[in-house]
Structures are given as structure tokens and as C-alpha cells.
Design a protein around this nucleic acid. Structure first.
Lengths: 343, 343
DNA sequence: GCACTTGCTCAAAGCGCTTTGAAGGCAGCG
DNA sequence: CGCTGCCTTCAAAGCGCTTTGAGCAAGTGC
């Protein structure tokens, strides 16, 4: 344990009051005194005890992230890690701590209540929102500042969120393929019920509708986004009487699986069949180069984490600064995996 | 904010002392009183304020994880997320909080010192140890209980760690291939300097040596474990005058890349060329089925997280319970990606 | 009957900080 | 000279909890 305020004060022959004020920038401290205090604090490597401080101020100086993680493994995923990393950067900069709570998914509500009742956090980030997610109302009712990473369709009450424009993003991707004369476009989506998956499908359907193309249920799948899932989707769909000429994948990993499934069938991406992936810019799933491997809808999930955290901190600072929302657009980047529909 | 101990005590017509003791299981409380208190606490949804509690006890009831994450992205990786998830389970069970600090990697030491001086944590998990990692000595010197996920070669002083038997694991994998008459075996490793990478290479070299085979530098690579890295390794090595007949990959992602590189060359895994991967059992990189896709050295990193956390908690509880160490063996599981060397 | 446990409960101090209310010193003013 | 008001500093209370030391009533043994 480090030096305490009292000790520091004693060593300076000052009262704790004055030292505290000097360090916290209160105006009623003599400039000379303040300088002395600052110097001594630095020298003694003084850091105020967070617990004591927050007990006194009533603010935890910490943000909670609750990760339900027993049966559904959907959230403990690569995307999550990068988001957390981004958020953590913002917290660190603001002097906030990040508290992570892993919980069986039937106990998620408890986790929030517990964290709150214990006074361990000032705000919450809600992960992996589903369609009509009841957790939003729950958190609102608890009266704690919170921000959703994503959105939840079907919830009317206002709440703060940061999301990417999934619908527009996938509409554009679909449109792009349509422009290349693709008419049979498959959507390999994330698991049903996740809000992002629904929005992506909407974008996809919207673009199809605008082109006067009836969606084919045989070309739409939703499941957990693994590589084998992509592989099977490719293999099975290409067996259809009227197979797709293009695929849109909800993640890079799925796109990897698609590519394998397709090349195993002797098809070349960008020539025989087209693939567009959603790219969260995860460092170990790179999609760069002069011509990226995959044409992709791209958006940094890490940057999303950074921004979401900053927004939440504003909310914590001033709970009345109203529901804050941000919709990040994605970039459609051209890679080697797309081309005109073969005929 | 929830109910306080004082309020609860008042409502029961008892002193805070008694209520505190009743709740914390001290023996000197009348059984009837305790029951009353328990019931009331439950009803009022009482949760002791963590900050007050830890201020009073001097224990933070929290464990810190510091993630350096600016330039080197090696740690914000999929493996990390699963380890954290496992550790979080153990913490939650023990009533501990998990504090995550993301920091520029030249500031990692500061992060530890700060966390400690502020009294925010009781223990630390050290991630991603490198060969001769100076952080171990640093933490030891700070006098905080800590546990390393992995080990650090070249550090003599004892410290607590949990690791998988990387050396044996890769020696076995290599041996397995040797038994299949492979003589040209490539090692596609993680980045140089990471301790796990060094141990894996040692295991590989050891098996080769035992078989009287001189290692070929052309067959050994180390880099960040991405899919394209695996792809390039496969493509380039197969161009060699004397190409490998088998590959060992340090991660599933790399193995994906290898597979693509090899199949692109028209080679069939398990027949024309063999691949063994290290499988951390990440949920979105599944390698299961009747016959798993890849022959693999398998070990759940999530389980490692669980155990590491438990060990650290023991250490926090009793700092003198000595350096705790655990070496987890991996399983060599037979999949479809290996077979006898072609001749 | 007394001294002495034993069992249960409480008042109060203290953890390290912030913050309120008060006070000392000094200049400016009439 | 005395009063006011400003600048600077401080003592003390309080945040919600644990824990020490004391106290009180009932039970035990002589």
C-alpha cells in the first residue's frame, strides 16, 4: 500500500484538507502551497486510495461490463475482445476503471443489481443486444447510466446506444452485387434474435426488394458465426438447383468458411462466385493489402469501443445529457472476392 | 444506491455490529437473530457496499488484469478473451471483481503501480509472458500476489504460474508425425520472444533431435498468428526444393491459413500433406465432430483461466502458501488432417 | 451466595478520503 | 483604531463498513 493523504499532509506540515484541495485543484489554495504539495505527492508516488475516494464522493469511478457466458457462447467472441480493448482505452484516459463480470446467462440481471447495490460502478455497457431486449427496460428502471453497444428493435423507450449502420451497410453490399448482375445472393447471417443480424437482413431484403427480387429462404441462414458454419453454407447452397452466385457473410470467420467451401468446389472467388464479408477490423483477421482479400463492409469495433466508452462517461457525468446515440457508417471496401455474375 | 447496513440494523432494532456479524457468519451471534437478519437482508436486497467493506478490511476483493495494447496487438487476441472468461467465472464464484486495465504498452509498469497504490486490487494476473520477462521481477518486488499465465524462461526466482506443457505437447505432435514417416516437418509458430513459442519450438526440436533429424531453418517460422500468415507459410514452403510433408501450427487460425494455402496447391490434407494445430478450444473455432477436422494438441484456455484465477485467489488469501504452479497437459487428438508421409 | 464463565449484544474507533463550517491573519476602509 | 471582507488554512464530520473492547444477562461450579 502506498502513502496516505494523512501521511503526506504530515510530512508537509499541512492539514489533510489543504493537501486534498491542492491536489484536486480547488481555488482556495495558495499557489505556492499547491506547488509544494504537488511536488511532494509526485515524489512520494502518492495515489489516492480509490476506495476511500469513492466512498467519500459516492462515485465508483468504474464502469461495468457484464458478460453472460455459460451456454450461449455468442458473446465471448473475438469481436467482444476488441470492443473491450477500445473501451478500456477511453476509461484509462478518463481515470475510470473497467469492471468485468462474467455470469451464467440466467443470472445476468442479478449481476447488474449486485454491481449496483454494492456501489461498484457508475455506469454500464450492455453487450450483444437482441431484438426486443428486456435488459434495456431493466437497466432504465434501475436508474443507472448505461449505453448499449448496438440497438434493440422493438423497444420504444429512448436509451443511449452506439451502433453501426448494419442495415445500410448490408443494403449497400447487396446493391453492389446486384449492380454486378447477381440475382441469387445468399445471406450467411449471425444467430437469429441478435439485433444486428435482424438489421443486416433488413438491409439485404430492402435492396433485393428495390431490385424487384423476391427473397429466397433457401439462401438465408443464421447461426453462430464459425468457420465450419460458413463452409457448410457454401457447400450446401451450391448444391441447390438454382445456386447463389454471391454470398454476404456477417463475419470474417464465416467468410473464411465460405471461401473454403467454395474453393473446395473448384470455384474461384471473384470470378465464379462473389463474397462480401463484414470486417470488424480485428487484428488477427486482417483483410488488407493493395487489394484486400475480401470485398467487405468495414468498421473498426475497437473504435466503436472507444467511442461508446466516451459517450457513457459523458452520461455518467451528466445523467440528464439525454439519450446519446451514434450511428457509425461502415465503409464498403473493394477487394478481390467480388466480380460480375458469371453467365 | 441500495440499503445500508445502518438502515438495515435500525429496521431490525439491532446494532450495525450485530448485523454485520450475523451476515458474515461470526459465531457469537444467536442463531435466531442471525436468521432474522438474513431474512431481512434478503428482503431488503441488501448488498454491502464493496468500497466501504474493502476500505474497512483493507482488501479490495478484486483482481487486476493489465492488457498492454497499443502497438503490439498480440494480446488482444481471441485466446485472451476466453482466458478472461474462464477467470471471471472463478472470480464471480469467490465474490471477487475483475478489473481490466488497457494501457499503452510502454506504460504497463505504471498501470500495475497505479492499481496497487490506489488499493484497487489484491492480486494480478500477468498475461503473455515473454522469454526473460522483466515484469515478473517487477511484480515480485512490488510485493503483490500475482500469477503468470504461462511461464518465462530465463527467470530463476520462483513465482506462481499456470501453463500448458507446450514443450511436451509439440514434442508429441512432432513425434506423431515422425512415426508416420514424415521427415520434413514445418513449424509455424507464434511471434518470437513469446515464451510459449520458444517452448513449442524446443519440443519440436527435441523430437527431431531424438529422431536424428537436423532442423531446417527454412521450415521454421514465427510471427503473429493470422490466417494469411499460415497461407503464405504453406505456399512458400511448398515451393522449396525439398518441401515439408507436414506442418505444425501454433493456432487454429494459422491452421486455417495453412489449409487454404495447401488446398490451393491442390493438396489434400491427411493424404498429400499433414497438419497438426494447437487448439485452445475457442467456441468460434470449433474442431469437433466424429473425426475432428484437424489433428490437434488440445487444451481449453478457458479452463486454464478458471484454474489460474482459483490459484491466484488462494495466493491472495495466504501469500505464504508459496509459489503455486500448475502444468496442464494437452491432449493429442486425432483428426482428419494427418496421415502417413506420402512417398 | 459468590466468583466466574459463557453467550450475546453494543458503542465507538478507524479505514482514507472529501467537504462543511469555522477560524486565523491580513489588507483596506472609514 | 476598529470593522469588514478576503485569502488561506484547519478541525471535524461523514461516506458504509469491520472490529476491538466492553457490558450485560444468564448459566455454572464451589
Amino acid at each position: 500500500m502506498g502513502v496516505t493523504l494523512k501521511q503526506l499532509a504530515a510530512s508537509l506540515d499541512l492539514s489533510p484538507t489543504t493537501v486534498s484541495r491542492a491536489l484536486n485543484g480547488f481555488p482556495e489554495v495558495n499557489a505556492k502551497t499547491r506547488a509544494r504539495v504537488m511536488a511532494a505527492a509526485l515524489k512520494a508516488n502518492y495515489h489516492p486510495n480509490t476506495r476511500a475516494k469513492s466512498l467519500a464522493t459516492g462515485r465508483a469511478q468504474a464502469i461495468g461490463h457484464v458478460i453472460p457466458a455459460s451456454t450461449s457462447h455468442e458473446i465471448v467472441n473475438p469481436v467482444f475482445a476488441d470492443f473491450i480493448a477500445g473501451a478500456g482505452e477511453s476509461y484509462a484516459r478518463a481515470g475510470y476503471e473497467m469492471v468485468l463480470r462474467i455470469t451464467p446467462d440466467d443470472q445476468e440481471e442479478n449481476a447488474y443489481r449486485d454491481l449496483l447495490a454494492r456501489g461498484s460502478i457508475d455506469g454500464i455497457i450492455l453487450h450483444g443486444p437482441r431484438v426486443q431486449d428486456a435488459r434495456v427496460a431493466m437497466l432504465a428502471e434501475m436508474g443507472v447510466p448505461f449505453l448499449v453497444h448496438g440497438r434493440t428493435s422493438g423497444v420504444n423507450a429512448p436509451y443511449s446506444w452506439l451502433d453501426i449502420n448494419n442495415q445500410r451497410s448490408f443494403a449497400r453490399a447487396t446493391q453492389f452485387l446486384l449492380d454486378f448482375d447477381h440475382r441469387r445472393i445468399a445471406l450467411i447471417n449471425g444467430i437469429e434474435g441478435m439485433d444486428f443480424a435482424q438489421r443486416r437482413r433488413q438491409g439485404y431484403l430492402q435492396a433485393l426488394a428495390a431490385a424487384g427480387i423476391a427473397p429466397d429462404p433457401l439462401l438465408m441462414r443464421q447461426s453462430e458465426m464459425t468457420e465450419p458454419y460458413g463452409y457448410r453454407a457454401a457447400q450446401e447452397m451450391m448444391q441447390l438447383p438454382d445456386p447463389p452466385t454471391a454470398f454476404i457473410a456477417s463475419s470474417m470467420i464465416v467468410a473464411y468458411g465460405l471461401r473454403r467451401g467454395l474453393t473446395d468446389l473448384g470455384l474461384k472467388l471473384g470470378r465464379d462466385v462473389s463474397v462480401i464479408a463484414h470486417d470488424d477490423e480485428l487484428s488477427y483477421l486482417p483483410n488488407y493489402g493493395d487489394v484486400p482479400t475480401f470485398t467487405a463492409t468495414r468498421s473498426s469495433v475497437r473504435e466503436a469501443g472507444r467511442r461508446a466508452a466516451r459517450m457513457l462517461l459523458r452520461l455518467v457525468d451528466d445523467p440528464d445529457c439525454g439519450p446519446l446515440t451514434e450511428l457509425m457508417e461502415t465503409a464498403l471496401i473493394l477487394g478481390a472476392s467480388t466480380g460480375p455474375a458469371p453467365r
